[in-house]
Design a protein around this nucleic acid. Structure first.
Length: 261
DNA sequence: GTTGAGCGTT
């Protein structure tokens, strides 16, 4: 019950994984087990968690033994209110085993109402070409595959970036994971992203000529005063203007006024 | 203490 995901996937050969989304961040597998187990035989439940914090990401994977039970749970638990939030149950796609779900296979086996279009939640399907993944891989070149993988990794990196900013604001330190053995991919990703950022879109909707990379990399020392001004502003952009202006005409100190006279 | 589109581990 609690050993789910502790020793990795126990045995996945004829199991069907369901993706549970919109769950609370404190919902655990033990909480979903009795819920999903009631509608079928659950062989394993796994909830992806953060590598650093360990918090739940907000979704879980429920592995069923039979597809019929899985489908039943999807239609039964989909939209159910769990822990104060309506969860969304659907078949997993990008799983490690890729459920052998075919187009209309399960729907045909369970013609409840000629389709579940107006069943409850007519949410759109995300990526229906996942079945063509293998086909595209063999057909397309390797460069294409690499590009796709890069995008996939970058998508996952979003979580890390958000959490990273929450944990520490010192992004300028650029903590590299070199020496740990697993920093190779991170380095590649970072470099690729950095280059794209500098080459493709430097700034979006924020035209700052003063912060131009060219000015920063090529400091013109032709003019001392100008360079000084730039440097001063760059060092403390909000420490010279607001303070001086506020202390000059905003708050001349009441005590000073009293003692001045 | 917070957040909310999505796709997974020993």
């Amino acid at each position: 019950m609690s050993h789910f995901g502790r020793s990795g996937p126990p045995d996945i050969k004829d199991t069907y994984s369901l993706l549970v989304l919109n769950i609370t961040f404190r919902t655990t597998a033990d909480d979903l087990f009795p819920l999903f187990d009631k509608y079928g035989k659950v062989v394993d439940i796994f909830i992806p968690r953060d590598r650093r914090t360990g918090d739940s990401r907000g979704f879980a994977f429920v592995r069923y033994k039979y597809a019929d039970e899985a489908q039943k749970a999807v239609e039964k638990l989909d939209g159910r209110n769990v822990d104060g939030r309506d969860i969304m149950v659907q078949f997993a796609k990008y799983g490690p085993n890729a459920e052998p779900i075919r187009k209309g296979r399960i729907v045909e086996a369970f013609p409840k109402s000629r389709g579940r279009s107006r069943s409850r939640s007519p949410r759109p399907r995300y990526r229906d070409d996942y079945r063509d993944r293998d086909h595209r891989r063999r057909s397309r070149s390797r460069s294409r595959d690499r590009y796709d993988r890069d995008r996939y990794d970058r998508d996952r990196y979003r979580y890390r970036e958000r959490d990273y900013r929450h944990r520490s604001r010192s992004r300028s330190l650029s903590p590299v994971y070199r020496g740990h053995g697993r920093g190779r991919y991170d380095d590649e990703r970072r470099r690729s992203r950095s280059r794209s950022f500098e080459s493709a879109s430097p700034v979006r909707g924020s035209p700052s000529p003063k912060r131009s990379p060219s000015a920063r990399k090529s400091p013109t020392y032709r003019d001392g005063s100008l360079d000084y001004s730039q440097d001063e502003r760059s060092q403390s952009p909000r420490s010279a203007s607001p303070q001086g202006r506020a202390a000059a005409s905003r708050s001349p100190s009441p005590r000073n006024s009293d003692t001045d006279e």
